[in-house]
Computed example of a mutant assay.
Amino acid sequence: MMTEELFREDATLLQCDARVTGHGEGGVMLDRTVCYPLGGGQAGDAGWLVDGEQRWRVTDTRKSKEQPRTIVHLIDGEALPHIGSAVCVQVDAARRDAHRRFHTATHLLCALLPYPVDGCSITESYARLDFHTDEPFDKNAIQAGLDRLVAQAHPVRHRWISEEELDANPGLVRSMSVQPPRGLGRIRVLEVEGVDLQPCGGTHVSNTAEIGALVVTKIEKKSAKTRRVVLGFAT
């Protein structure tokens, strides 16, 4: 029942052929998919399953609670494609593009603000990071830093390291609430060349210039030890 996760290696891949392996948890399981499931603070992908003239709307994508390493595609409606049938999986391209741009932008924030992260949310309309610190943030300085890093067009790439390499470099993990998944023998890390390196399984752009114009929409003091930064796209 395991789902091959094509999005881990190519975030630009927007469709693939797949076979239905099961029903449950409100949706459909497939043997492979391009749809990213909710996790690591990033919202799940939406899209469609297509079989000839039939189309099923995928409203969200989640990790199965019952089947390890299996992804559930939540379907709008009660009728589901038959188990064993072949379908084409299509990602909502606009939603994926926003997730990729915002997620990479949060890595730029981590580079600008060297504090542990204790909360994260990446959607198609905004991104936010909560930093564990009591230091005040300068909104204008953060905006200028983001503008600079986007304009500098840093290459963005992922690679895999062993769990032993991560153990030898615990400082790579910036998040206090989400730890890299273990048990597979390797950890996926995201590198913004010359800017940031940390474990991350999300979808990203291939160059910071692709992020486009960002706006720091809000900075909040959420608690004595938490400062929140919210990002949007410039209109």
Rank of each mutant, 00 (worst) to 15 (best):
Val89Arg: 00
Gln90Lys: 08
Gln90Ala: 02
Val91Thr: 11
Val91Lys: 00
Val91Gln: 03
Asp92Thr: 00
Asp92Asn: 08
Ala93Thr: 12
Ala93Cys: 10
Ala94Ile: 06
Ala94Phe: 07
Arg95Ser: 13
Arg96Met: 01
Arg96Tyr: 03
Asp97Trp: 13
Ala98Asp: 12
Ala98Asn: 10
His99Phe: 10
His99Trp: 07
His99Lys: 09
His99Glu: 00
Arg100Tyr: 04
Arg100Leu: 07
Arg100Ala: 02
Arg100Asn: 07
Arg101Tyr: 08
Arg101Ser: 00
Phe102Lys: 09
Phe102Tyr: 15
His103Ala: 12
His103Thr: 11
His103Trp: 11
His103Leu: 11
His103Asn: 12
Thr104Ile: 09
Thr104Phe: 05
Thr104Glu: 07
Ala105Ile: 13
Ala105Phe: 10
Ala105Glu: 10
Ala105Lys: 06
Ala105Arg: 09
Thr106Asp: 13
His107Thr: 09
Leu108Tyr: 07
Leu109Ser: 08
Leu109Ile: 15
Cys110Ser: 11
Ala111Ile: 02
Leu112Val: 01
Leu112Arg: 03
Leu112Asn: 04
Leu112Pro: 04
Leu113Asp: 07
Pro114Thr: 11
Pro114Ile: 10
Pro114His: 15
Tyr115Cys: 13
Pro116Tyr: 05
Pro116Thr: 07
Val117Thr: 11
Val117Leu: 12
Asp118Trp: 00
Asp118Gly: 00
Asp118His: 05
Gly119His: 03
Gly119Ile: 05
Ser121Tyr: 05
Ser121Phe: 08
Ile122Tyr: 01
Ile122Gly: 00
Ile122Glu: 01
Thr123Ser: 15
Thr123Glu: 11
Thr123Cys: 12
Ser125Leu: 10
Ser125Met: 06
Ser125Asp: 06
Ser125Trp: 04
Tyr126Ser: 15
Ala127Tyr: 15
Ala127Thr: 15
Ala127Gly: 15
Ala127His: 13
Ala127Cys: 15
Ala127Asn: 13
Ala127Arg: 12
Arg128Tyr: 12
Arg128Ala: 09
Arg128Asp: 05
Leu129Lys: 06
Leu129Trp: 06
Leu129Ile: 08
Leu129Cys: 09
Leu129Asp: 05
Asp130Pro: 00
Asp130Ala: 01
Asp130Met: 01
Asp130His: 01
Phe131Gly: 07
Phe131Leu: 04
His132Pro: 06
Thr133Asn: 14
Asp134Arg: 12
Asp134Asn: 10
Glu135His: 07
Phe137Ala: 06
Phe137Asp: 00
Asp138His: 03
Lys139Met: 09
Asn140Leu: 00
Ala141Cys: 06
Ala141Gln: 00
Ile142Lys: 01
Ile142Ser: 06
Gln143Ala: 07
Gln143Ile: 02
Gln143Gly: 01
Gly145Ala: 08
Gly145Trp: 03
Gly145Asp: 06
Gly145Phe: 02
Leu146Ser: 04
Leu146Thr: 04
Leu146His: 03
Asp147Val: 00
Asp147Ile: 08
Arg148Tyr: 09
Arg148Ile: 07
Arg148Gln: 10
Arg148His: 12
Leu149Phe: 10
Val150Arg: 12
Val150Glu: 14
Val150Ile: 15
Ala151Lys: 11
Ala151Ser: 13
Gln152Trp: 12
Gln152Ser: 15
